[in-house]
Design a protein around this nucleic acid. Sequence first.
DNA 1: TGGGAACCGTACCGTACGTTACGGTTCGGA
DNA 2: TCCGAACCGTAACGTACGGTACGGTTCCCA
Lengths: 235, 235
Amino acid sequence: MGIAATTAEAGGEALSERQQAVLDAVLALMVEQGGDLTVSDIARRAACSKETLYKWFGDRDGILTAPVRWQASKVRAGHYDSQHLDASALRQSLESFAANWLAVISSGTSVALNRVAIGQAASGTNDLGRIVLANGRFAIGERLKPLLEAGRAAGLLAFDDTEVAFRTFFGLVGRDVQIRLLLGDRLALSETEIAADAKRAAGQFLALYGNRASFEARLRLAPQDEGGLYRPPSS
Amino acid sequence: MGIAATTAEAGGEALSERQQAVLDAVLALMVEQGGDLTVSDIARRAACSKETLYKWFGDRDGILTAPVRWQASKVRAGHYDSQHLDASALRQSLESFAANWLAVISSGTSVALNRVAIGQAASGTNDLGRIVLANGRFAIGERLKPLLEAGRAAGLLAFDDTEVAFRTFFGLVGRDVQIRLLLGDRLALSETEIAADAKRAAGQFLALYGNRASFEARLRLAPQDEGGLYRPPSS
DNA sequence: TGGGAACCGTACCGTACGTTACGGTTCGGA
DNA sequence: TCCGAACCGTAACGTACGGTACGGTTCCCA
């Protein structure tokens, strides 16, 4: 930090092709080796000189934080359209959100980036923590809330506080996944597991916030494949 | 790690009074200054010599991990008795679990300890990650599951997989609290906020896993103070 | 009162690593 | 063809910090 960088990441303008390749190398190194990177390691891996690294990113902190900022800038995804929203489309969108989010937080790059940000948050001066939060937790919140409110407007959901509803959804989706991965627990989420988890989370969310009519319909159906819904004791 | 420590933390025997005081100092330093501690810092703060620190804990890694192990060893709490379990007692126990867990993860020491463990998990050799997980996430799981199963045995809860049910509870309680704190978000949870969150989480969990009779009773009541339950549109 | 163990505070050593400097190469434009 | 900018690889510098050594003080016990 400190001294302003010369070229990149200062105003947040576009990075050159080469610079992006370097950041990719840094990221790959973070993923496979952890946070204790030496600048020489990075230079060797990226096949560029240390002088260039310092010229581009200022100092070691800049070199390590650049990939975080860069990845964060790529998170932006398309908003979901809230037209023609019926119960099925709502459920589908919720599942899609959940699956997407699970895929993100369980990816190696996300884990590595969050570790770097947490390490930096520990060392007094924050920045990365705010950036990661803004582009993770809060970004998905701002993207999901319109869907929730559209669902409410369509009479499919019922809640007072959108923030509370979103945080519940967040908890139902993420559960213990992120903290376990951050702490080094092996936890390989396959494509199908993510899909199943997303389905369960969406179902539980709808059970909590769906309107009574649709919920009672689901009660009568008593589906077997979604956790958390009551079914009559089989005994 | 590496070379076995001489006195403390080797077999996990009791630490002397003085040693505990030193670990308290390390912990306090972690909380207020973050993870980038020098051994000299610690020695100055703990008012002891570096020589003693190395003698007791082996090397820098031992010095930093000792307080984590020590705190972890203190987490053990009494099991909840599952006798005389009715709906009210179950709800009370769930709320108690939730409030306790929220208080733990939002405490400064927990945040600092988790940051240290995450930083160490990033640097190849794990250990702390496993310890923190074993004494946090998994310990509470093992303590809560008997309660859940007792509730099921009493006909108050319905679920197939205890693990799935627990993870749902975990998600409903923690939501985004831990990751936000780890990333440096200011998020002061007051006593009353924790109590309210615990109540909401327990209510949502019971709405998902409670049996139909009690759930329908709560539907008719349409309580105002618990998030996530449907109430008829006031319009 | 003497002796030894434990420990504090400080000084010291060696090294790893952040940062800078420099010679050599590539490449695009006049 | 020449020039300069950008960059690579390597070497050099300075320092911070992990780890050790040592003299001085306290305290326990014979």
